[in-house]
Design a protein around this nucleic acid. Structure first.
Lengths: 341, 341
DNA sequence: AGATTTCATTAAACCGGTTTAACAAAGGTC
DNA sequence: GACCTTTGTTAAACCGGTTTAATGAAATCT
């Protein structure tokens, strides 16, 4: 019973072979005779020896770990979007033998504290404007894929992104098509580029049909509201219905839509007859279980994550490649919207 | 522009100091004069040097990474339970400066492929019966905390677990208290110990009041059903209502309950008047957004995860400690159950 | 049988850091 | 001025693996 963990040297000594031989037995990278192999494995089992991943990584400069950099706030939980994205990343990594290092730690202020992480590549969520980390990863020689567009645009960096403008456009096009003009848009926080892009797309759909955009009212979620997404949807309706005039609501996420539906029930507003609700969905499973089922524009965070992982895995094998993929949204008509008569 | 990444030796040479000095400048573990510090940092910046986490880990035998071992199936997504649990683990780790290595890779069959992972400790989800990994981690000297009870019981291993028996008991006690006898229990898959424990608790509540258990009908989810949890709830009701007689439904998760509610709406069954629904909830945010709001027994997967992480962090500092925490469920009465008249 | 190739093994260098022990120079005490 | 600390620095050993170049033995070819 060693207090201490057995190392390759212990095994080599006890088996009467060199450490190189033991290494070869475990890595199978070089042929080793049957007898020696058996003796080494026997001794290793005896000693409870297992190769040390860190030491191996240092030597071969490879960890088979992908990093996922994703800030979280202390109080609130992961959003549906983040969860689904992780899901996609995870599955793709798992499929290719990679594990995932979830790094939710806040950025260091002290530059001496940065270090080259034990990963072969990194997926970074929501890059900030002029994000200094992009350059840093380049210096470190670590492949990087962003989820979200870099700002300023950069031809040399890989990213995947939802086409949020398209998302907004499709929603607008649909709602206009079924006669709605007065629309309440419960958008994401205004400092997020997604919020900007979506509203931009929505406005674009109005412009495309020559309809004045003034009848759209936009609210923005704010982290300062200390309640969750569903509550945001609920309160927004409770506080505005009757005061403001709208016949359709665009909810930023499925959760927000859930809150909207609850408020509607409480106020006895018949959805979709009196009020149409459309969700910018990132989790299709929720949208299908409501009553009425949510009409939504799916942006599949899972596909986004999987796509990011695929690109990263490709890039880890050939660091010269650059892929930038923008994924269009898909309108799924269910039951929560109706033609304005 | 070196094709290669700068190392501590490069910095030492260019700054005209020893590598030990450079090390001290970055680790701040030993005093270094102002002038030297500045010169070294200057050179490091020039060269784009960042300390290598892997090399450092090897030397100090510490990674500041916690492992989370969690199998996933290729096709299905993480369950709400898993998501919430990860959430809890993540927050707790983040708070203490740890990152999280999500290991969803299937177990290796080849024993030479095991290795001591680059983690300071591991949280393992759903240990199997006689799980060999428990012993292996012990040999590796890696602190381990289970989520779920080890089988066979083991005094020396840390774990956290829901008190699933208590969960079942509380549900039964409540439903019996409001007059229900004929109950449909949509339970988890029958090969999971949680399913057994819950039914055991439910039966216990009947026994405690001397009521025959025969009026309870139990269904079990099966992975062979190729549909999700919500669909399980939906179909179960659609297929049995009218054929079997029950006045209350116990749903294994929030998602299942969602499906039950949808079926009820479709069949025009008034919940809670004609049918009471109670959920074994692992995600309180869903339960609050349904109509009617779900009465549930909360088992907060998030708290479970956080608790596991807390214990692990404690154990990583003092490996001798052993904590086993069983967390009782909490009945939250909302709107989906009513007294049987 | 001798020359040549193949195969298994090893010693030593290497990966990129940290840490120990030794030491020189500067500062403090009497 | 001799003696003791303190401070800053370094060379070398170390963490636990992989890999290269060298070597000796066995197998194959003339």
């Amino acid at each position: 019973m060693g207090q201490t963990v057995a190392t390759i040297d212990d095994v080599a000594k006890k088996a009467g072979v060199s450490k190189g031989t033991v290494s070869s037995v475990f890595s199978k990278k070089r042929p080793i005779s049957r007898q020696v192999t058996e003796r080494v494995l026997e001794v290793a089992k005896d000693l409870g020896y297992f190769p040390n991943h860190v030491a191996r990584s240092l030597a071969i400069k490879k960890t088979m770990i992908a990093g996922l950099k994703m800030p979280i706030s202390k109080d609130s939980n992961m959003s549906g979007f983040e969860i689904q994205m992780i899901n996609g990343v995870m599955k793709e990594c798992s499929k290719n033998g990679y594990r995932l290092l979830l790094d939710t730690l806040p950025e260091h202020d002290d530059p001496t504290q940065f270090s080259i992480d034990p990963v072969d590549g990194v997926i970074m969520l929501n890059p900030r404007k002029q994000d200094p980390r992009i350059e840093r990863y380049k210096q470190m020689g670590i492949p990087l894929v962003l989820v979200g567009r870099p700002d300023p645009e950069d031809e040399t960096v890989c990213y995947v992104d939802n086409n949020n403008r398209d998302l907004g456009f499709k929603v607008g096009e649909y709602l206009l098509g079924i006669g709605h003009r007065d629309i309440l848009f419960l958008n994401a926080a205004s400092d997020m580029t997604v919020a900007y892009d979506r509203e931009n797309g929505l406005a674009g759909s109005f412009a495309a049909q020559g309809i004045p955009y003034g009848s759209v009212q936009v609210l923005n979620y704010s982290r300062k509201m200390h309640y969750n997404a569903a509550e945001y949807g609920y309160r927004s309706i409770m506080e505005t219905f009757g005061k403001k005039h709208y016949t359709a609501v665009i909810a930023d996420t499925d959760r927000v839509a859930l809150g909207v539906l609850r408020a509607a029930r409480e106020l006895n507003i018949d959805v979709p007859v009196r009020l149409s609700v459309i969700a910018l969905s990132n989790d299709a499973t929720v949208a299908q279980e409501t009553t009425p089922k949510l009409t939504s524009v799916d942006q599949s965070a899972e596909i986004l994550g999987a796509e990011a992982a695929k690109i990263l895995i490709e890039k880890m094998n050939d660091s010269s490649i650059v892929h930038q993929r923008v994924i269009d949204a898909k309108l799924v008509i269910r039951e929560s919207c109706s033609h304005l008569s």
